[in-house]
Design a protein around this nucleic acid. Sequence first.
DNA 1: CTCACTCATAACCAATGGGTTATCGTTTCT
DNA 2: AGAAACGATAACCCATTGGTTATGAGTGAG
Lengths: 106, 106
Amino acid sequence: MQATADDLFRALADPTRRAIFERLALEELPVHALTERAGVSQPAVSKHLRVLKQAGLVRDRRAGRQTHYSAQLGALAPLIDWTSQMAGFWQSRFDHLEDLLKRMDQ
Amino acid sequence: MQATADDLFRALADPTRRAIFERLALEELPVHALTERAGVSQPAVSKHLRVLKQAGLVRDRRAGRQTHYSAQLGALAPLIDWTSQMAGFWQSRFDHLEDLLKRMDQ
DNA sequence: CTCACTCATAACCAATGGGTTATCGTTTCT
DNA sequence: AGAAACGATAACCCATTGGTTATGAGTGAG
């Protein structure tokens, strides 16, 4: 199921969680690597990842005893839709970016 | 002071508050008009407006005993920047892949 | 086989936050 | 002047949530 703008805003509202997502936008990482930099405990990181996954923002890949997470940038589409709708005059400038993300979904 | 992406995400994470902002994006409205549709009490609406104003998302204009609020769409800029940056990260990952493929080409 | 590592879950706690009712200061209307 | 409308604030309540520690399940290494 497609995440709503509501899901995305809620998932990204927390700074710690958003920081995790930002890191995952750069590279796929296992939980312990994320924990090192997150400034919170490993269970806290796992909980954040759960929320991000629920929102469709990240994907997990089991590899032995590690779980690698990566960002699903295409999931940002509803956020872009919402913003575009709000700021109608920027619509044209956004269409390009939106297309890009949608085409690269998953 | 300029609101951060953090402020914006937090301000827009609540559905009721976001709905208020969406209405104000269409037209300037006094508090009581917003209250009619918000589904919550007038003080609740006032609190939401306070948060939105703090984030720079709305502007208020006193007129007699009414206070008219309107959306400041330009305040969404940091949100757009953030999203663009995320897309940019993705782009750079893609560039890396391209590099890799090119180097492997010969 | 045993020990260490990785991660998810459970149980719990404190802070935050969105809601309420009550009230007060302004402003408008009669 | 008195009453009613409007909106902000205060005081309070309860659900949510982000954090913790403890633990268990699964996997890799010695």
